[in-house]
């Protein structure tokens, strides 16, 4: 049982504060959704947790199993069990998905320990079968010339192979078509289980038709302003984000 605790987190880009005191705890096995209007700091939150150098944490803490990860390099955070499914994953021309994942798996092994190729491919193919991904897919260069759906598939496959403790899935405003949406949803539902905690960042409620979250948080102006179960998402869908704004104004 693991926990990811975000404690009064403040994040700035350059000198502009974007996340303004956000607290949230996710435990293994839970799926949390964060919803909110554009520009409210949802993506910033996920990048900051993953350790992107452009995102400066000015206050607060992020703890993985009770220990702060803020002093760790991005790769150390990744190896500690934090996975970020990117909204816009980078292309790596000339590097096949199979080789990329192999390097990532190798990076998680102890020094001097060599990855065993046969076992690696066996596991890779198992995961691909599980996610219904064609075998030919992994010989393509990472995200190079991929459609939106293929990029999502690539992210989900990496998540399946790297078996993180927590996955931050940044789906905000990515204009996912229905195929891409299904890929993400089916992937999360397949991988969902007692060993994985998910933070699902989404702008639209429709993704939550496929993935039923344990908790829904509404984020506005750098903070979580409302928390509830999946019915909150439906209410948001019906009443729009203006409802949240108005409610806030009255509070």
């Amino acid at each position: 049982m693991s926990s990811l605790e975000i404690r009064d987190l403040h994040v700035a880009i350059d000198s502009k504060e974007i996340v303004k005191g956000l607290s949230l705890t996710i435990n293994s096995g839970e799926v949390h959704a964060i919803m909110g209007p554009n520009g409210t700091g949802k993506s910033t939150l996920s990048k900051a947790i993953a350790g992107h150098p452009d995102y400066r944490i000015t206050q607060g803490d992020v703890l993985l199993d009770g220990r702060s990860i803020l002093e760790l390099e991005p790769d150390e955070r990744a190896r500690a069990g934090i996975f970020l499914a990117f909204q816009y994953p980078s292309e790596i021309p000339g590097v096949s998905i199979a080789n990329f994942l192999r390097a990532a798996v190798q990076a998680r092994m102890a020094e001097g320990e060599e990855l065993e190729a046969t076992a690696y491919y066996k596991r890779l193919y198992q995961k691909m079968d599980m996610l219904k991904i064609d075998r030919k897919f992994t010989s393509r260069s990472v995200n190079d010339g991929f459609s939106g759906g293929e990029k999502k598939r690539c992210e989900i496959l990496q998540m399946a192979m790297l078996e993180p403790k927590f996955s931050l899935m940044d789906e905000t405003d990515s204009g996912l078509d229905i195929d891409a949406l299904r890929i993400v949803a089916e992937g999360v539902n397949t991988l969902r289980g007692p060993g994985l905690g998910v933070l699902l960042i989404t702008h639209y409620q429709r993704l939550l038709n496929y993935i039923i979250p344990d908790q829904v948080h509404v984020m506005y102006d750098g903070r979580i302003v409302k928390t509830g179960d999946k019915s909150l998402a439906l209410e948001l869908e019906a009443r729009g984000y203006d409802w949240v704004k108005t409610e806030l104004a009255h509070a």
Partner: peptide
């Protein structure tokens, strides 16, 4: 930088 960050996020050192 984004490419490097992406790879680091998968556990590779810089």
């Amino acid at each position: 930088e984004e490419q490097i960050f992406y790879m680091q996020q998968r556990g590779l050192t810089e």
